[in-house]
Structure formats: structure tokens, C-alpha cells
């Protein structure tokens, strides 16, 4: 199984990245080398093994249903690239 330039472009779109042509070629090359290395997992018989999703048995953690002070409006907007006094601002999305 080998990753093509089209595959890289398809994955880049899913990942919301724009890649230049030379980057597509570099990532194609690197991904193929890394994925070839990963293919060694096929040597392991896992037909009777359940996937591990938590390293230890998760316990349900309860807390009191009490209101805690939330992040202030000012703090929530502090790092926004563009905001007015109440909201994040984004480019026009309805064309």
C-alpha cells in the first residue's frame, strides 16, 4: 500500500492544511517511509485481542452539582485574533 500525491492532497484537505507542491512530495515520501515501518504490526496476531482504549479501568468520577465561576468574557476573548466587545469575529461565511 503506497501513498500517492492524490492521497496526500486528499488527507491535507481532511486535516485542513494547504500544502505547496514541494511539501506534497516531501510528505508523500516521509509518509511512505513511516507507514512502511508501521506495517510491521501485521506480523502480530491480534485476532483474539481487544483494542485497548484506556490504560487503566476508567472510573466514573462524580462531583457536586454546584456552579463554579466560568472563564470571564474578557478572558475568553483575550486571545481572539479578531473580536468586538462581545463576540469572536469571522470572515463573511454566507456568500
Amino acid at each position: 500500500m503506497s501513498v500517492t500525491k492524490d492521497d496526500v492532497a486528499y488527507i491535507a484537505n481532511l486535516a485542513r492544511l494547504t500544502l505547496a507542491d514541494d511539501e506534497i512530495e516531501r510528505y508523500r515520501n516521509d509518509m511512505n517511509r513511516i507507514l512502511a515501518y508501521m506495517d510491521q504490526l501485521n506480523q502480530v496476531d491480534t485476532s483474539a485481542v481487544e483494542p485497548l482504549t484506556h490504560v487503566y479501568a476508567p472510573e466514573t468520577v462524580w462531583r457536586r452539582d454546584e456552579a463554579q465561576p466560568p472563564l470571564s468574557h474578557e478572558d475568553a476573548l483575550k486571545n481572539a485574533p479578531d473580536a468586538d466587545s462581545d463576540y469572536f469575529r469571522v470572515p463573511k461565511v454566507i456568500e
Binding site: 492521497d7 496526500v8 486535516a15
Partner: peptide, 26 residues
């Protein structure tokens, strides 16, 4: 990000991500 998106993408999820979760248990 590209590698992670690839191993989670339709058609490859079980071959890579699912497989790795099983080997993680071993």
C-alpha cells in the same frame, strides 16, 4: 497531523488505528 489523519481515515482506520490499539494491549 497528516499521518494521524491518514490512519484514522475511512478504509485505513482498522488496518492502522484498530490494529495499534490491539498491539497496545499486548
Amino acid at each position: 497531523i497528516m499521518l494521524g489523519t491518514y490512519v484514522l481515515s475511512a478504509g485505513y482506520y482498522e488496518a492502522y488505528y484498530g490494529k495499534a490499539q490491539r498491539v497496545r494491549r499486548l
